[in-house]
Nucleic acid binder design. Structure first.
Length: 581
RNA sequence: GCCUCAGUAGCUCAGUUGGAUAGAGCAACCGCCUUCUAAGCGGUAGGUCGGGGGUUCGAACCCCUCCUGGGGUACCA
């Protein structure tokens, strides 16, 4: 778990600090100045490999010209035994450092020793994370948003785990409450229509009108005939809804599995009701004085909880009034608990019963109004939802083909389901495309995703991997196996493109860390394109086969390290890295 | 109305949390295969970073304000 960019940055920091200390001791600069300096990698390599803004940031406090400070520091900077071969003053007072062989060599040797683990970091070491994602309503087929959420959640979980967290993946199954009632009534109507005729039974106005309900009712009828025609309504409802769920839930599991998505647990909402945990949680809120009764229903004082938080965050009463905060119903007048009550109980379970340090939920942007309320409810229970609960809101997916918005499946004429999508688009393309920045609205171009050419970024990356594999195979056939790093003299790698490729390889650890920090695994997508591009450029300019032994070995090792990183990163986002294309 | 996300090249997006001349991919145009996979590489062209103010050595990024688009604002889940 060695992070070469971090190591280089730390060294820039130490070198700069030491030089400043020395200068201050000589009395040439005021001592004890702390500056908010940043260490970065300049966009243009002409400005060095690493740069620090220390002189710019500290100049004011030192009452000196930044370039003057820079001059004093560079004169006293000792680069021996460091990764750097030179330091230069540039522009208004940047200190630009140039990397030497030592760093490049160490970078490749880390890839070699860490192998399949290369890219891991320890930012979240020892933390227990849960990612809850998809959690689609089990009353019907999954849609595009679920596909995006599935890919995003799975990759995010992966990225967090590569950053050291102990990650748990969960699907929350809403198998209780109002929509299950609706589900049962809809199935019932279709079932009775099969027996008595379409016109003899009225379909509920707010029922589920989809064809999947008809199909389920038909299946049920084929298995049970008119056995449930004359029984108690409740028995019929219960039987029908559990029949429907027993059919739909396994279907969701297999659909998600086709995308390579698996869960540690499918958590059933009904279990929270049956164990009395929902009732207990609502009672707890009541004990703490956060509820009241009105019109026969039990309400949570959401507006009061949120207003208190906003005041603490420094908002004025006027700002708060503008928000027009509303309270929420926990238990309806008919005695049933709301979805919100169950959700509060569920999240209490995540924190209190199972002890997660951090819970991340991936929701569609349409649930945005729910975020503050759920966090507030957690805070009301003393569970610190503000800190420990993070909601990633992902924007909607717009399907596009040839520039036209697609709403229906070509084949079935119905709304496009996940199954349809996978029948049309390969898994690799789906994983890659849906792994986009969560909070931006995305267009999924069906035409592009199936293209097997350079327009499709998935193939661009996969091609780089396959190219290397073939190369390694051909060279092995000629007796050139990939050498050990210790057997190779990497100082022969002097071309700018070779150096650029090694720097790109080193950047992987940082991208994984940023993806975990931002909850945005699309960092890896962009990284893969950059790495593939760096390789293709190198490949085009530097020959391997037929070069003299020393150069051949060094370049062969570099190619193999690139292959390893491409493979690791592709696996991370759930795409395959083919050995030939 | 209020909340929220977004607005950067013709299109899809980056921009390392305030750094140097704003970058990629695709599309357009011009080149590069008797030599390791041309599913590749090089080059040209393309910009008022939505508009306007402000903060400072320095702003696409921070603050104010306005404009445009998506989503939300249930005793639904």
């Amino acid at each position: 778990m060695i992070h070469m960019i971090q190591k280089a940055k730390e060294q820039v920091q130490t070198l700069t600090d030491a030089a400043y200390q020395k200068t201050a001791e000589e009395g040439l600069l005021p001592a004890g100045v702390t500056a908010k300096a940043t260490i970065e990698i300049p966009k243009d390599v002409a400005n060095g490999d690493y740069t620090t803004t220390f002189c710019l940031a500290a100049a004011k406090a030192m009452r000196k010209n930044p370039r003057e400070v820079a001059k004093l520091l560079t004169e006293r900077m000792d680069l021996s035994d460091s990764y750097f071969t030179s330091v230069a003053i540039a522009g208004p007072g940047f200190l630009n450092f140039r990397l030497g062989d030592k760093w490049y060599k160490e970078t490749l040797s880390v890839v070699e020793t860490e192998g399949a683990d290369y890219g891991k970091n320890d930012m979240l070491q020892g933390k227990k994370y849960m990612v809850e994602f998809v959690s689609a309503n089990p009353t019907g087929p999954m849609h595009m948003g679920n596909a995006r959420g599935g890919v995003l959640g799975d990759t995010l979980a992966q990225v967090l785990s590569w950053s050291g967290a102990d990650v748990w993946r969960e699907f929350y199954v809403n198998d209780a409450g109002n929509q299950i009632e609706k589900f049962a009534k809809s199935l019932e109507a279709r079932y009775l229509q099969i027996i008595k005729g379409e016109d003899a039974v009225e379909f509920p106005e707010d029922g589920y009108h989809g064809d999947d309900i008809r199909e389920l009712a038909q299946l049920f009828y084929e298995e049970n005939g008119d056995k449930y025609l004359n029984c108690e309504e409740k028995e019929r409802h219960d039987t029908l809804s559990s029949f429907g769920l027993n059919h739909n839930i396994p279907k969701m599991k297999t659909d998600l599995a086709r995308y390579g998505i698996r869960y540690d647990r499918w958590f059933f909402e009904s279990s929270l009701h049956e164990s009395g945990f929902v009732a207990d949680t609502v009672n707890k809120l009541t004990e703490r004085g956060f509820t009241y009764e009105k019109d026969g229903a039990l309400w949570l004082r959401t507006s009061q909880i949120l207003a208190a938080q906003l005041r603490a965050a420094g908002k004025t009463q006027e700002d708060i009034d503008k928000l027009d905060l509303k309270d929420d119903v926990l238990r309806r007048a008919n005695g049933f608990y709301t979805y919100f009550a169950a959700d509060i109980a569920y999240h209490r379970n995540k924190f209190e019963v199972r002890g997660f340090d951090k819970v991340i939920n991936i929701w569609g942007a349409d649930h945005h109004g729910h975020v503050a309320r759920l966090k507030g409810a957690m805070d009301a229970l003393g569970l610190n939802g503000t800190e420990k609960l993070d909601i990633v809101l992902m924007q909607l997916v717009k399907l596009v083909r040839d520039g036209e918005v697609v709403r229906m499946s070509k084949r079935t004429g119905k709304a496009i389901s996940l199954t349809d999508l996978l029948d049309e688009i390969p898994v690799d393309a789906c994983r890659y495309f849906f792994n986009a920045k969560p909070e931006t609205q995305m267009e999924f171009d069906l035409g592009l995703a199936v293209r097997e050419d350079s327009e499709n970024p998935v193939y661009y990356v996969q091609y780089a991997h396959a190219r290397i594999c073939t190369l390694l195979k051909n060279l092995a056939a000629e007796g050139h196996a990939v050498p050990k790093g210790s057997e190779v003299d990497l100082s022969v790698l002097t071309d700018d493109l070779e150096k650029a490729l090694i720097k790109q390889i080193a950047a992987y650890c940082e991208e994984v860390r940023l993806a975990a920090r931002d909850y945005d695994p699309s960092h890896i997508n962009r990284y893969l394109i950059d790495l593939a591009a760096a390789f293709h450029k190198f490949y085009n300019a530097c020959r391997i086969k037929g070069e003299e032994e020393k150069i051949l070995s060094a370049r062969l090792l570099l190619a193999d390290c690139t292959r390893r990183v491409l493979e690791n990163a592709m696996k991370l986002i759930g795409c395959s890295a083919p050995e030939k294309m």
